[in-house]
Design a protein around this nucleic acid. Structure first.
Lengths: 251, 251
DNA sequence: CGCGAATTCAACAAAAATCAACAATACTAT
DNA sequence: ATAGTATTGTTGATTTTTGTTGAATTCGCG
């Protein structure tokens, strides 16, 4: 560990992005030294390196949530458009958090007079400003990586509503165990929404059918017969049992 | 990843649409370079490209709130940047709804470890996704034209918090009557925030000093000596009494 | 539809940044 | 004190980025 590490990190985090040249002036060492001491920092992910400068990993624009939204972007857009075909003007819908939900929210802007309840601030602000919509934000304190809430008041709001549809998502679809996610709080919100909704719409892109690096272990509540499954590719054969009672739509 | 990426994204997201020409002037590089560094951003969907300019994917034109945001945009951007100079990393701030607040939220993305409470879903979702921030959304049911909440739970949340600053706005500044708005609920929220905050920051662009077509009649709570007034032009002489005890900053 | 202006694109040359290797210096432990 | 180790600055070759040029494309407008 170099003696410059802390100063270097502080400076870069403070300013967002600092050129190698300027860093060498600030620390009073050569540019080559900056490159050398920054390499381990870059390797362990404390900093990012670009040609000519170092940028903080905490820097705003490349946010985890938005980065995730751009993964499989085309698939998610297609799925979102398919979901919107199910919903009609004037319907009510509960929307959970998740990368696909953001796209569905965008696509739902083409409808009118929707009643929406969601625990995602992004979804809420996307749909709230459409004239005629009635949007409720469930929850108070927002999780930083996706701006969603899972506190007590979120459940209070959800339990007060009765909606036509609920949009759910999952991190992994497993032929044996069903729809899996990483966090218990996500399951809790999904259950609450499901309990107060008519038909559920499970939206998962094709990447969710393949093994994940970090395997999720928590089961989403089981769906009712007649609930929708919307995805962007025909699912492999081994999922036919799991989807037997669902109305499957492929975008 | 280019070293210009962060600045470019911030600028475009903040302003909605920026011409390639102006971007090249702002970043001090050629227009060709702007095209080059923006291409990967466009490819991964972080930006949209049109002939002659780049537009933010987050921008949603032709809506009342965002239309209002585009009125006097340059002034509001300047004011927002001035407001950010007052706030430091780690500070806590309450933010009311209003067109200028949206710009301040965008500008506050450059700071870290902020604690934010707001009744605007737009502000909440803008700041919630910055890693390290702690954002609370005050309120449940959202007003459709600006996605802000004024229900009972909004006050409950605000009254629970004690923050360093509160950002307020107004529809009209009147030399005799002070800061005026249209709706009583806006005054109520402002009062609640003011009661739980250290110093207030009143942000009004120069257009608010001139008569409005629809004259607002409700008085915002009076400010304390030492509170900030941030605007984009030196206010006319007749306001000197009203601003006597305030720290006036002109962007 | 066609014209002029503005914008974009492709290619190349210049400039800047990076890397690897080596020499000089400081520091440590015997 | 001295050999050994680690850190730093310098040099020159290599790679990446950038601005410029001219051709091709797109846009706005009569």
């Amino acid at each position: 560990m170099s003696k410059y590490e802390t100063t270097l990190l502080q400076t870069v985090d403070m300013r967002g992005t600092v050129s190698v040249q300027e860093l060498s002036r600030i620390l009073g060492v050569s540019d080559q030294t900056i490159r050398r001491v920054s390499r381990p920092l870059v390797d362990r992910g404390a900093l990012q390196k670009v040609h000519g400068a170092l940028v903080s990993t905490k820097s705003a624009p490349d946010l985890p949530y938005l980065a995730r939204m751009n993964l499989n972007r085309d698939a998610k857009v297609a799925i979102a458009e398919e979901v919107v075909k199910i919903i009609k003007n004037g319907d009510s819908i509960a929307i959970d958090t998740g990368s696909t939900s953001g796209f569905v929210a965008q696509a739902l802007r083409s409808l009118r007079e929707l009643t929406v309840v969601t625990n995602s601030a992004y979804v809420a602000s996307t749909l709230a400003m459409i004239p005629g919509n009635n949007v409720s934000m469930a929850g108070t304190q927002l999780r930083d990586h996706d701006g969603a809430s899972f506190d007590r008041s979120a459940f209070d709001v959800i339990d007060r509503m009765q909606v036509d549809y609920v949009l759910l998502s999952a991190s992994l679809v497993d032929a044996r165990n069903g729809f899996l996610v990483h966090e218990q709080c996500e399951v809790d919100i999904a259950s609450a929404m499901l309990a107060n909704a008519g038909r559920a719409i499970m939206a998962v892109d094709h990447s969710k059918f393949e093994p994940q690096v970090r395997k999720p272990v928590l089961r989403q509540p089981t769906l009712k017969p007649g609930d929708y499954l919307v995805t962007d590719r025909v699912p492999p054969e081994e999922f036919s049992t799991l989807f037997a009672n669902l109305e499957v739509r492929v975008a």
